Amino acid sequence: MSGASSGVNVPAQAPAVPGAVNLRDVGGLRAGSAVTRHGVLYRSGNLARLDEAGVSAFDALGIRRVIDLRADDEVSQAPSPLGSLDLQMQRAPLFLGSVESFFARDVSLAELYRLLVDDSASRVVDVVRGIVVDQPVLVHCTVGKDRTGVTVAVALAAAGVDTEEVVADYARTEAHLPQWRNAAVVAHLRRLHPGAQHLEDLATRSPAPVMRDLLEDIVRRYGSAADYLRANGLTDDELRELSRVLVAGGGEPPRFSG
């Protein structure tokens, strides 16, 4: 596992991994008087475009576990070329239904995130357990925005990271998505769903207010992100370990005091 951070609140630069989409380290986020460690938890979109140089650069990160949040059809269409690497591959499909169905139903990002928290709670816990078991660890889905955004946000919040730091990390995704990719995806989806109001948000955006509202809703309903995970099976020992591995000086998960 990585050593402690210097304590300066500087989010890590995106690792140079050719072919990776939205790959970044969540080190450098404030957690009270502490800070998240660099080189422990990474997040990204799918890794299907990694060539030989990309796989080599990925291997150099030392990642020991990759947690893939995609459904079976997504994995079969865009498999990760990591079979030659010595790491644990963990599947934790987070959508109960196809990606296409959310565009067809024209759900908002807020609705989608509430569905993820409510309907896929056991899988969110599985992801957090995977983060606790092995580090460095990568959590990814297809774009690294929604499924990855929600699970990483919950994990960070449960470890004691400041809410606005969690929100900022989520919002950072939008700037990491290539414009050529956004234009092609939106044009394709618009042909399929010409009247959809939420299409561009679902496909390309990560607005801070949506994540802030989600985290506030979790606090209203459960007490805290840590209590949400407790309610769905994560133990206090696991929560303490989550804080310990993610936060320099961590070890005690936050408790709701309101």
Rank of each mutant, 00 (worst) to 15 (best):
V132R: 08
A121R: 07
A187C: 03
D86H: 14
T163E: 15
A14T: 06
A184H: 10
R65K: 08
G149I: 12
A121I: 11
R37C: 04
D126I: 00
G62E: 06
A225P: 03
D126N: 09
G251E: 03
A196N: 14
L61K: 01
K145W: 03
A34W: 02
V150F: 10
G223I: 04
G28Q: 02
D59P: 01
R30D: 06
N9W: 10
Q90Y: 01
Y228K: 02
D51R: 03
D237R: 08
L41Q: 06
G233W: 11
G7H: 05
T142P: 00
Q135C: 08
V10K: 14
P209D: 12
V139T: 07
A184T: 12
G195T: 07
I131R: 00
S224T: 01
R65P: 01
P93M: 06
V127P: 00
Q77E: 14
Y170L: 04
R49W: 08
V154Q: 01
P93G: 05
A78H: 10
R190G: 04
D236Y: 05
S257R: 15
F102W: 15
S2E: 11
V8Q: 14
G19A: 11
V40C: 06
R123T: 13
L61V: 06
V107R: 06
L242D: 02
A78C: 03
A155S: 12
D162M: 07
E241A: 12
L234T: 10
S80Q: 12
V21Y: 03
S76H: 09
S108T: 15
G250E: 07
A110Y: 03
L202H: 05
S44M: 08
A159K: 02
A158F: 05
P11S: 09
E164H: 15
A226N: 05
S257V: 15
P11W: 04
P209E: 11
V185W: 10
H176I: 01
R212D: 14
P253F: 06
A110P: 01
E216K: 11
A168C: 08
A196T: 09
S101F: 01
S33T: 15
V133K: 06
S98E: 13
L82N: 07
L116D: 05
V143Y: 00
L87T: 10
P209L: 10
P136S: 11
V154E: 02
E52D: 15
L214A: 07
L47I: 04
H140I: 09
Y228W: 07
R70W: 02
V186L: 13
A168Y: 02
Q90C: 08
P207Q: 11
S108D: 12
R91H: 13
E164Y: 13
D236N: 13
Q197R: 15
R181H: 06
A187P: 02
G249Q: 06
E52G: 08
R129Q: 09
D146P: 02
P15I: 07
A4H: 11
R123N: 03
G160W: 02
S84D: 11
Q88V: 12
A153D: 09
V128I: 11
A31T: 04
Q197F: 00
A53E: 12
A60R: 14
S76N: 09
L82M: 07
L138E: 04
G160I: 05
R49V: 10
R230H: 00
G249W: 00
S101H: 07
A110H: 09
Y222C: 12
R212T: 13
Q88N: 03
T36R: 03
I67N: 04
